[in-house]
């Protein structure tokens, strides 16, 4: 694709996204917020995937951030705006500490441990009744950000998405890109070219986790409450994963593309089928892995004759 053309498309898409609340009603804004939330998570998942590490712990870090934000506000007396960066900080710091332990693990062991850590966060929060509100959750009584105005909340979520896109862009256009790609392709050769594997994995893990925490912080501000079941919901792991896979991994555009497609389909299905609409996600994951491991974007690139990315 022509460089200028894609820049124009990106700019106009951004302009439309910013201007949306001026002409859209509450329901479309709500849908757009959900889609953007999942899109941002899909991008962060993909950023870590670029190093070959597959995380099943998105929901864990998202939920951790969500609780950090809400508890910072209610127990710590923080103003609402501060609770969001605080959520990012807590998730990032937790990832930093955990990273020392788990970033030596590879393949399925890494994935399983991230999933287990997410569950541990959930159980701890579930069980600390007095501090976190336990299974019933916790509600922000007063001081919700922007007084709950739906267009301002939309812009807030858009801001979270912008952070994710910017970080992903930074990952794509700096030397991190080469480090992560080299680690993914062959660790031994990456090491022998002088790449500090652990350091770059830690950077990627901390940055992606912090953004996931940030999104969690935005999520609780938008809804005004958190329960272990909602913020640690498996959806926050599942949907982003399916979106990134469908759109095409190892890029920023792929997850965006997949999130728009799947997000809108999901919102529509949610109205039609209250139970089990997620079955579509399972089937999409299966079909994509079997028939187009490069995602839709990879397919398009292949057919337009451009060099496709390495198979996932």
């Amino acid at each position: 694709m022509n460089r200028n053309l894609s820049r124009i498309i990106a700019l106009s898409a951004g302009a439309i996204a910013i201007a949306l609340p001026l002409f859209a009603g509450d329901y479309p804004l709500q849908v757009a917020r959900n889609v953007m939330m999942y899109m941002a998570l899909a991008i962060t998942w993909d950023m870590l995937l670029r190093s070959g590490q597959i995380s099943f712990g998105i929901a864990g870090l998202f939920g951790l951030g969500a609780y950090a934000g809400i508890l910072g506000m209610i127990r710590g007396g923080m103003p609402a705006w501060l609770s969001i960066p605080f959520a990012a900080f807590v998730a990032g710091f937790a990832a930093f500490l955990i990273g020392f332990m788990i970033l030596r693990l590879r393949a399925m062991y890494f994935s399983i441990v991230t999933l287990a850590l997410g569950e541990i966060f959930r159980i701890i929060i579930h069980n600390l009744h007095d501090f976190t509100g336990g299974p019933e959750g916790i509600v922000i009584q007063q001081g919700v950000i922007f007084g709950g105005s739906s267009s301002k909340l939309y812009w807030l979520t858009l801001g979270g998405l912008a952070v994710a896109i910017a970080a992903s862009y930074w990952f794509e256009h700096s030397k991190i890109h080469f480090a992560l790609t080299a680690i993914r392709n062959n660790e031994t050769s990456a090491k022998s070219s002088g790449i500090d594997i652990f350091k770059w994995l830690l950077v990627a893990f901390v940055v992606t986790s912090a953004i996931q925490g940030l999104l969690g912080g935005i999520f609780v501000q938008s809804y005004g409450f958190a329960t272990p079941e909602t913020v640690f919901s498996a959806d926050f792991t599942l949907l982003p994963l399916a979106m990134a896979l469908l759109g095409g991994v190892y890029s920023t555009v792929g997850p965006i593309f997949g999130a728009i497609l799947l997000g809108l389909v999901a919102e529509w299905l949610k109205l039609k089928i209250p139970y089990g609409h997620l079955v579509v996600y399972g089937i999409i994951i299966i079909l994509v892995i079997l028939f187009m491991p490069n995602g839709l974007l990879g397919r398009i690139r292949q057919t337009t004759g451009k060099r496709a990315g390495r198979t996932a």
Binding site: F56, L241, A242, L245, Y275, G276, Y281, G282, I283, I285
Partner: peptide, 16 residues
Amino acid sequence: ILTFGIAIALSQSINL
């Protein structure tokens, strides 16, 4: 990811 997808497809079909 494939078997993960199968897991979701199965549990959600039953849910459906």
